[in-house]
Computed example of a mutant assay.
Amino acid sequence: MSDTSKDILVSFRNVQKSYDGESLIVKSLNLDIRRGEFLTLLGPSGSGKTTSLMMLAGFETPTAGEIRLGEKTLNNVPPHKRNIGMVFQNYALFPHLTVGENLAFPLKVRKLDAATVDEKVKKALAMVQLEKFANRYPAQMSGGQQQRVALARALVFEPQLVLMDEPLGALDKQLREHMQMEIKHIHEKLGVTVVYVTHDQSEALTMSDRVAVFNNGDIQQIDGPRALYEAPTSSFVANFIGENNRLSGVLQSVDGSSCQVRLTHGEVVHANKINVGDVGQPVSISIRPERIMFNADSETCANRFNGRICEFIYLGDHVRIRMEVCGEPDFIVKMPIAQLDDNLKVGDIVPIGWSVEHARALDPL
C-alpha cells in the first residue's frame, strides 16, 4: 500500500443510491476522505449530501458501489459495529439518563470497566466544559448545552471517524457561531476525522479543511474554503458559495488563459477562461461583489463600465450597493463602511470596474 493510500480513511467508489429503482439521489460518488481532516458535505436540500452521510453511517445501504473505512468494506457492516461517532441536529440524547449516564452508555456497550468509563466520561465533559453537569438530565439544560453533550458522547469512545448531520441547525445565530469555533477547536485538538453535513455555506467555509459541494447527486467541486470562494469551477458553485454577480453573454474570442465575452447588451468583458465551450456559445461571468472598484479606483481596471446606483443596504461594518450595470438590475458592490463616499446617492451614475483575474468565465446557468 502506498503512503498516499495510508492517508485515506474513507473511500466511496462508484456509490449510487436510489429509493425507487429509477431516479438516483446519489449518482456515482467517488470520494476519498483523509485521516484527520474536517470535510464538509455542502449543498441544497435534495442534493445527496445527507444520503451520502447516512450510507457512511450505515443507516442507508448503497444501491451500487462500495464504501471502505480503512481496509474494511462497510457495505454489510451494521451501524453499531462501524465504530463511528454521530452527532445529530436533534441531539438524540436519552431523556431518562443523566448527562454522565448518556456519556457512559457507548462505553458500557463496549464493555469497558467502571473505572475506565468514569475516567473517560470526566475527560469528555471537561473537553466540552460541562464538568459540573454530570448529574443533570437533558431537559434541565439549554439547547447549546445539550448539543455539547451530544458532541461529547460522539467523541467519548475515541472513534476514528465522527459524522455530524446539521448539528447546529436548531441553535440561534450567536450560539451557532460560538459552537462552530468550539467544534473546530476540538477537532484540531483531537485530530479525529470529521465528516460534517450542512446547507449553510458560511458554516462550511468557517469550519472545514475541505468542502465537497453537492448538487443533483454529484459533487460539483471539492476544495479548500478559499479556493471554492475565489476559484469556483462552475456557475453553480460560484452562485452557491457566497455572494456573486453574474453576467450572461456569448464567448467572442479566446486568448490563452483569458477570453472576451460579449454581453446581451453588446458590452465586452475580459475574463479568466475557466469553464467555457466554443466561440459563439453562451457563457456566464462570475464577479465577487468585494472585487469591484468604484470611481477613480476603477481607472486601471481592464473592465470599466458606468453603473446606476439603485439602493444602499447598510450592514454595520460594510454596505451593499445595488446597481444597474450592463443591463443587470441587481448587480451588487460590497464596500467597507470606512471607504463609502457620503456624497453618493440613489440615482447617481458612477464608473465601476474589475480586473480580468477577478472575472471568471464559466458555464451558462
Score class of each variant (00 low, 15 high):
I84Q: 12
M293P: 04
S208H: 08
Q129Y: 10
L56C: 03
N83T: 05
Q16L: 09
N245Y: 01
Q146V: 11
S23Q: 12
L190Q: 07
L69I: 12
V254S: 04
L344A: 06
M207T: 01
I8R: 05
L168I: 11
H318D: 11
H96E: 06
G307T: 13
G249A: 03
I309D: 01
P159G: 04
V211L: 07
L93Q: 09
V350K: 13
V87E: 11
A227R: 15
F240K: 12
M335D: 08
E158G: 03
D341E: 11
V87H: 10
R35V: 08
M293G: 07
P78R: 11
F12E: 01
D348C: 02
Q281R: 11
T193E: 00
V269Y: 00
R304Y: 02
G144W: 09
C259D: 02
A227D: 15
L315D: 05
T40I: 04
S284E: 13
N306I: 09
E243R: 12
L362S: 02
D278V: 13
T264M: 05
H185P: 08
N275A: 10
I241T: 06
R68K: 13
P138A: 07
S248C: 11
P232M: 02
R322P: 00
E37F: 02
E66D: 15
Q145I: 11
K81E: 14
K108C: 08
L344Q: 10
A296L: 13
K81N: 12
L315Q: 15
S28G: 12
E324N: 09
D32E: 08
S11D: 12
L263H: 03
Q180G: 03
E71G: 14
I25V: 14
N216I: 03
W354Q: 09
Y91L: 10
V333W: 14
K108W: 10
F157Y: 15
A271G: 01
K189F: 02
A154Q: 09
L42I: 06
M207N: 06
L161K: 07
R176M: 08
L97K: 14
T198D: 07
G266R: 01
G280V: 00
V213K: 08
L155P: 04
